[in-house]
Simulated assay, not measured.
Amino acid sequence: MERSDAPNSVNHSHVNSTTPLWRAAVFLRIVTLPFAAVGVAVNLDDYIRPELGLIVLAVMAVWTVITSVLYLQPAKRTDALVLGDLMLTQALVLASELVLSPAQLDESVTPLVTTIWAPGAVVVVAVHRGPLFGVLAGMLAAVTNILPRGYLNIDLARDAVLLLGVGFVLGLASKTARHSAEQLRRAVRLEAATSERERLARMVHDSVLQVLARVRRRGAELGGEAAELAALAGEQEVALRALVSTAAQEPNESDEIDLGVGLRLLATSRVEVSVPATPVSLPVTTATELLAMVKEALANVVEHAGPNASAWVLLEDLGEEVILSVRDDGVGIPPDRLAQAQAAGRMGVDLSMRARVLALGGTLVLETAPGAGTEWEARVPRVDDRARERKP
């Protein structure tokens, strides 16, 4: 289903992007109403129920005023109003069978009471709901245009094709306008975020980074406890440089982000991160869960691998799946250590790592031995969230 301009389903960018089309739809209704009025005036004497013809014309005029006022207000463009417009218009078209004489209905040269005013409802549906619903509305309008006459000729077939074409073309234009507005919104937000990041990077470089660098150098010269502070300052300096140098990102059209960007932010003097040069785009949920898994693994390195342990994070993109490895050169994990931790109620590995990967449809493999370090390897298929929800 295409996105509508109803207030509960769009934002202001979508409203603004289709506003010119709504104005055009209103203008079409207004300019076709006098044409229908002239048609009624010319054929009124030949109608079998001229008073009903005048009533239909009056309803058309009143409805044109009502819809013109409502359609020019974005908050009023609801599904109910558009559907009501389509149904009322088709009812007025069918009423022509009670107004025109049998001879007029047999002559395709005599227009129905609504004449070219009626396709305005198809235009509205197409602008509101896109090409699919525009075509469906065109099909409905084509059928109701044929029913009063009871036959199909070349003129009525031509009108049917035009109605279908109007529904598709204007629906496609509406969808394209929304897509363009969304792209522009993303670009503006990304540019604003990048500019703000560059401004903060200049401020941080002129103050915090210089201080951290000085603490690191001076602490290393003093030695002892100052050397420990120097090491901590060095780690924070590396992390902060990675933070301010990494470009901001937003989910793309498929609601995906580059996992490599998040992983680069985890690099420190003790953690080396290696990711592909090209973006590794994954659904937001998948990328978020994998980042959380890596953070938990790195936290375990700090807490259990030893004071001098280093870690390496490697991301591989195999197309159908991604492989994410976290390896350290620490003391390793004793054979029964994880089982003892689980029995003691410490569920960090099971909940923060293994459960996350399994929820993504992947596998998590551990390779470790006392004194030989630890390596976690997660393999996760590249599927979007909707496909995962459909998976049993």
Rank of each mutant, 00 (worst) to 15 (best):
P148R: 10
P148D: 04
L290R: 05
N43C: 05
S174N: 06
D45W: 07
E253I: 11
A6V: 04
T19H: 00
A339H: 15
G120L: 00
K76H: 13
R185L: 14
M60P: 07
L152H: 15
K175F: 07
Q249K: 08
G348Y: 11
A58G: 10
A372T: 06
V59R: 03
T286F: 11
N8R: 10
T363R: 15
K175M: 14
I55Q: 09
A160F: 12
V15W: 12
E377S: 11
M347V: 10
R189Y: 12
G345Y: 04
R388C: 04
R77S: 02
G373R: 00
E235S: 12
G130N: 05
L265W: 12
H14F: 06
D350Y: 13
A192H: 13
L318I: 06
R354D: 11
W63A: 13
R354G: 08
L28N: 06
R178K: 07
S352R: 04
S101Y: 04
T89I: 13
L140G: 06
L152R: 10
V349T: 08
H12M: 11
G53Y: 01
D45K: 09
P276R: 07
W376S: 08
L54S: 07
V109F: 13
A287C: 05
I30S: 00
L266G: 05
A378L: 14
P279G: 03
D384M: 10
G219L: 11
L86W: 03
N43M: 08
A226W: 15
E221A: 12
G224P: 01
N145A: 14
D384K: 13
L209F: 15
G130K: 00
Y151S: 11
V204E: 11
L358A: 08
K175V: 02
D336H: 08
V215T: 12
V99A: 01
A58K: 02
R3T: 09
M139S: 13
G39E: 06
T144N: 02
